[in-house]
Nucleic acid binder design. Structure first.
Lengths: 118, 118
DNA sequence: TTATCATATACCCATATGGATATGTGTGCC
DNA sequence: GGCACACATATCCATATGGGTATATGATAA
């Protein structure tokens, strides 16, 4: 088996730069495919396919408006990613260093308590 | 051209579930390949290659210790991802809704000022 | 109805995986 | 030196892209 299907996983869907561009563009509000094609400077079929992937992972929603299809951002879909990387934030963010130290100290004390048989 | 090389981009590197598992495991501290092989239940060559990818995007560092190679997490590499998704956080997090409303109001006032000639 | 606009699909193709397996390389132990 | 151990690489292979181009579908305008 090659890589996991990108349509299965938000991480994969968002790993593609063009798709991130699309999402970024949609933070400005609903947009028809047409407009995204111009913004990305990519051919329409490719944009449509990227949008399909984003739809399948729930990162965007569609709405029919005449002969256009308006795509809208569905930010909740990105929450899992945010949750995941946030777990690492304390490892690089100095604002968390003090807290880390405190926790380390507490853990140390616990260990000593156990060691001394409580 | 197919997908952008995973070794080029942290987003791609992290899009692979196994590689996320590796990073998660490394939050506990340095580990030899050996140990990661057991943890992931994946063959050693595959683990080595995932580690190579992670090294190439700077997500992990290596250190030689006798005949072992100890891999260590390099959390800063994940910061770009965190920065990117954080830009979306206000779109789903209700704690930001009030702030958004305020900003929207301010923007509204600006627009009216412009409209009135100012 | 027919032509046209806005999209979505269908293919084709080159390329990048990821896993499996075999083998190369460096280090410590006898 | 010779061998086992811990990893890293090299190949092979099936599969999943992503872009390019042609075409189908749906709605609206003429």
């Amino acid at each position: 088996m090659a890589r996991a299907a990108t349509t299965t996983d938000t991480f994969n869907a968002v790993a593609e730069p063009r798709r991130r561009e699309i999402l970024d563009a949609l933070t400005q509000g609903e947009r028809p495919v047409n407009e995204l094609v111009e913004l990305l400077g990519l051919a329409q079929p490719q944009v449509s396919r990227h949008l399909r992937v984003l739809r399948e992972v729930g990162a965007v929603d569609v709405r029919d408006e005449g002969r256009q299809r308006l795509y809208r951002l569905n930010p909740q879909a990105l929450k899992p990613i945010h949750d995941w990387v946030s777990g690492y934030q304390h490892l690089w963010d100095e604002r968390f260093e003090l807290l880390d130290d405190v926790l380390a100290d507490l853990k140390q004390e616990d260990t000593q308590d156990e060691g001394s048989g409580q």
